[in-house]
Design a binder for these strands. Structure first.
Length: 116
RNA sequence: GUCGCAGGCCGGGUGACCGCGGGCCUUCGGGCUCGAGGAAAGUCCGGACACCGAAGGGCAGGACGCUCCCGCGAGGGAGGCGGCGAAAGCCGACGGACAGUGGCACAGAAAACAGACCGCCGCCAGCGCAUCUCCGGAGACGCUGACGGUAAGGGUGAAACGGUGGGGUAAGAGCUCACCAGCGGCCCUGGCGACAGGACCGGCUCGCCAAACCCCGUCCGGUGCAAGGCGAACAGGCUCCGCUGACGCAGCCCGCCGAGGAGCCGGGUAGCCGCACAGAUGGAUGGUCACCCUCGACAGAAUCCGGCUUACAGGCCUGCUACGGAA
RNA sequence: GGCGCAUUCGUCUAGUGGCCUAGGACACCGCCCUCUCACGGCGGCGGCACGGGUUCGAAUCCCGUAUGCGCCU
């Protein structure tokens, strides 16, 4: 994922949290907020320590980046996104596989369409 | 061969396509190359490095504590001693309790320096009484009480003031003797040493706790890369202290220095350096497929290095103990 | 990443190395009181985070592990 497609400042995260909207499922929470000068979508990830140890968190982040990368052209542009992982995802992901993770992301993305 | 013990090692592999981070090259299409661990972990010890005043002194505080060797040190290796084990082997913060202070619950007479509740013994007094009698008394024995001696025995306790036996005594006691245990001194032998073995002498016995305060010896200044250095753009502004000594080593005191310093707002911010032969600053190793095997544990670098500790599927190698078998 | 602190019934907490079989309050359960509930009374259940060590003896002292919290940006 290119640098232009990533959230890179703590301020940007704060802006999305404070001023953006959010949807959530059993496993994920997705915030989004419109950019000041609409451009390509930017993406940020937050995996709390409660999810697991460092190895489990790193693995989840890599897989979720892969998932997001595959959906870049389908995601509405002009927005910043922050995806938060909720506890329990690591165990479910190892049990159900990579495709299952993709379905969970599609789930919350569909909810943003409904909310908009 | 089985069980056990010690030490060391590996920690899925190969290939294809699509991706990620750094570096180099580039004809800007891309190409080449490197890219997590033995513990990267816990942050328990050191050190490097950086700042605090030049890295000063004392107190306070902290860490460590058998011997030798290596090491600045933390620590490691080899040994001694003590404990566990049948053995190989494992475990141990292991200086000092006659420098001082303090503690040892319950139980028990008594818990640390000696003392004496019961008991035992002597003597005196009173009372009772067998017996004797010169009828005045004497009185074995028993009871009670005062005084004195003694510490052998006493349902305790984690621990009881050496143990066993002989002598000795009114009763007893290291009071004395023999052996044993322990303590101190001196000497001999072995060892660099801790220490081990032995001989002699002495007083006869001196409890445990210092991971209780403490004493002795050795060592340690503090803070930590969010340390610290450079440092914008807009755009500078305000308050206070100070040669009668400020600010300054941060717990305290001393000594020392000597002109600037402290606080607030933008801002000591952004960014760069620190920062690496992996190496970022939202933080790099993933996805899919195929084949093979023993179907893969614990687990992910954030300044670096060394040590300690903890976690770990399965497998391999070497040495050793015990038992069994074969030659 | 670095530094510091804490952990005792379900919850909040007491606890000079021995009076500890760890005390109290709230909660929970049973009984009594009441026409019933509440209040009140009596009784019960239930805990020293875990593993070692020092000591005759550890919730307490020491070491390690686990968990939680705070500060530095």
């Amino acid at each position: 994922m290119k640098r232009a497609n990533r959230l890179s400042r703590s301020r940007d995260f704060d802006a999305v949290y404070r001023q953006g909207r959010s949807v959530s499922s059993r496993f994920l929470v997705l915030y989004w907020f419109g950019q000041e000068e609409p451009a390509a979508p930017r993406f940020g990830l937050s995996v709390p320590k409660a999810v697991g140890n460092a190895v489990a968190r790193n693995k989840l982040k890599r897989q979720l980046r892969e998932v997001w990368h595959a959906r870049l052209d389908r995601v509405p542009a002009g927005r910043d996104y922050v995806l938060i992982v909720r506890p329990g995802v690591a165990e479910a992901a190892t049990a159900n596989g990579f495709d299952w993770l993709g379905e969970r992301v599609d789930e919350v993305l569909a909810m943003t369409q409904a909310a908009a």
